[in-house]
């Protein structure tokens, strides 16, 4: 089974986000970048499927700056076989140009499965995976929390509001991974050492400019300061009173 996993380098979820001087992007000074957490589930699922099949290849593909090589190495350290970096210093907020570059890269790769995280935790577009599927004419199930594949068909479950949708599909297919799909492994020291020697191809990405222009990036409105109503269970009455008559939310 040949599997592609598309990953993204993003600021860590614990990072404090500051707006850069131009007011249009984040200030990356001192920000720690990581492999997008949802992509970890995608990498793990690819490795499990390959291990289950007893043979296969897992190729990790990313669009981003040179520094994204590090992110690809993380996935290689987890156990992926090879990496491809489609180099682009600036990736805009329109997901379609990104999807086009990925679709062109994946088109003739002979992949049985293309995996993504359900979204990147920086711009939260949920867009690139389903777009790539459309561009390649492949079936796609997004935000998958449970996946079974046997022979050339698969069954996926995805959480929707108040229920779980069950979807059947044939391979090749595109799947985007939600939390709960699996428990991603940590790269072992041996994996980290091996990852350094694994092939990582770097080529320039021909990204179109896209149809979205940044007017500004602003910090969120500060919440106005609240108050401690009191200590211990005796403060409960005052809280209920405030919720009823001051905030009027009860």
């Amino acid at each position: 089974m040949k599997i592609a996993v598309c990953i993204k380098r993003v600021p860590d979820s614990e990072a404090r986000i500051k707006v850069a001087a131009d007011g249009k992007a984040i200030d990356e000074t001192g920000v720690k970048f990581v492999l997008n957490p949802y992509d970890e589930y995608a990498v793990e699922e690819a490795l499990k499927l390959k291990e289950g099949a007893g043979a296969g290849e897992v190729v990790v593909v990313s669009i981003g700056p040179d520094a994204a090589q590090e992110t690809i190495r993380t996935a290689l350290a987890m156990g992926a076989d090879t990496g491809v970096l489609l180099k682009a210093d600036a990736v805009g907020l329109d997901p379609l140009p990104v999807a086009k570059v990925l679709a062109a890269e994946l088109k003739d790769g002979g992949y049985d499965l293309v995996l993504f995280g359900k979204m990147a935790i920086d711009d939260s577009s949920h867009g690139v995976g389903p777009m790539v599927a459309e561009l390649l004419g492949l079936p796609c199930v997004s935000a998958v929390a449970h996946l079974e594949i046997s022979d050339r068909t698969g069954k996926a479950e995805r959480e929707i509001e108040g229920g779980v949708e069950v979807v059947e599909f044939g391979l090749p297919a595109v799947i985007t991974a939600d939390k709960g799909l699996n428990e991603p492994r940590y790269p072992a020291l041996r994996g980290i050492m091996m990852a350094k020697k694994k092939p990582l191809e770097v080529k320039d990405a021909a990204l179109e400019p896209g149809g979205i222009e940044v007017v500004r990036l602003s910090p969120p409105a500060e919440r106005k300061a609240g108050r401690i109503v009191g200590e211990g269970p005796d403060a409960v009455s005052a809280l209920v009173e405030a919720l009823r008559n001051e905030a009027k939310v009860l």
Binding site: L93, L96, A99, M119, S125, H126, M131, E134, G211, I212
Partner: peptide, 23 residues
């Protein structure tokens, strides 16, 4: 931008070849 819409919106954008502003 529900579970359904987050899946459907990018597909429509890809078919039409136009940008998607999500959520």
């Amino acid at each position: 931008a529900t579970a359904l819409g987050k899946d459907l919106a990018p597909r429509i954008a890809a078919k039409l070849g136009c940008p998607l502003a999500a959520d």
